[in-house]
Design a protein around this nucleic acid. Sequence first.
RNA 1: GCCCCCAUCGUCCAGCGGCCUAGGACGCCUCCCUUUCAAGGAGGUAACACGGGUUCGAAUCCCGUUGGGGGUGCCA
Length: 472
Amino acid sequence: MTSPVRVRFAPSPTGFLHVGSGHSALANWLVARQTGGEFLLRIEDTDAERNRPELVDNVLEMLQWLGLQWDGEPVRQSERGQLHADAAAKLVAAGAVYFCDCTSEEVQARNKAAGGKPGYDGFCRDRGLEPGPGRAARFRTPREGRTGWTDLVRGEISFANADLEDFVVLRGDGSPVFLLANAFDDADMGITHVIRGEDHVNSTPKYLLLLDGLGLSRPTAFAHMPLLVNEQRKKLSKRRDDVSMADYRERGYLPEAMVNYLALLGWGPSDGVEVRPIAEIIDRYRLEDVNASPAFFDQKKLSFVNAEKIRALPVPEFLARARPFLTHGEASAAALESLATEVQERVRTLAEVEPMIEFLVVDEPEVNEASWTKAITKGKAVAEMLDATIAWLEALDDDAWQPEPIQRAVSAAAIDAGLVNAEGGPQLSKAQGPVRVAISGRTVGPPLWESITVLGRERTLARLRVTRGRLG
RNA sequence: GCCCCCAUCGUCCAGCGGCCUAGGACGCCUCCCUUUCAAGGAGGUAACACGGGUUCGAAUCCCGUUGGGGGUGCCA
């Protein structure tokens, strides 16, 4: 029997949570949930310079939004300095490290003279320098042999030790570097599976050597997830790409859509069903089945998944989710409620809800220029159609202000205006254009009869007259 | 430069030696349905990077080439 799985997500709060980290966090979470293991959180906040407390809040908030609930209290790496210092002392005592007083300028200069190869050249390796201010401790990497591991997504990976430079473990000021804190904490927290991005592959042999030097056991498994890339096939970057998780939330994406889509990058269920409940993904997800090649973060497909998830929502749930995106408060909410299913089926994001119902809320619908041109300027028999529609709708009494009678009225108006098809019936595809623009300002929107019903007799007729008036 | 990784439609996946005339999804295009837009239905477009092996048989295994990516800090 193997020990229970313990995984961790270890973000450094130097930026907002982005979709790439979300991808790694999700993989960790899925493995924990499917094995009954634990998903731990460790905030790697040792870089006081770049750290910002509010970014920690953002990371936690986004994980919660995504539904990736962690187990236990988040661990703050900055509070574990003593442990790291003790570990470093152990390395010093064991002779696993040596001290070095080279400045990076000196190292670079020597490398340049030696033919431009980067990395530390081992200058101080045998100088026997004592510890002292400004002197960094470097790990004495083996000159021979290889260091490797079995990667759940990539298979066997190994590096020649000779290619590993004597990397810094303690800075000149005595503080431990990331790699030491990271490897030590993983071991100390009992992490069994280290699941992270591909960008950590190259530092893994050093991580392993460090654990060996510390006498700590290695994790039972590693999994290096494929990087998420942009259309140029470059690693997603904060600077040029749309990567902020919070931005996606603000743009009306559902967390379940984001999580489902993220799971699909690098992995796919063998039955081909891509959009499905998270519980099913938990059951089917296997690190062994994850692709090692980089995956393009495709917003179009994300939008598709989002639309599917929105349509799958029970109506009351849809209304609740859309609520924060409504800009006219109660009025918007009431308007949306009256056309809920019609709107729900038509939006790809929650941010698209408000524009679709705004005509019901504002006094004057904003007229979309392209729509006006298409349906009014270039429309046929527009004046006749509007006149006839006004006449037929005026004839409806309040009790008859319902979709069915309204449809009949507009159909009759179409016939009056001469907008008929080959069989002499109303040509609604043409006829509804001017009416739609008159009441909503746009050529697209929820079904017309329902829209008119909700808009109400008075406002509908007023808008039709105003539009008719503009024609002169 | 060096090290490591990767390589199936435009994109994301399926395929794990014969079931492949290479399948699904997104996108795009056409048609149907239809009051617009969606949704739905029916089609279409489009890929195993290349060259050598291994094998009776290779998209699947091996080697090389080419191409792409990542790493290369006293950042995390």
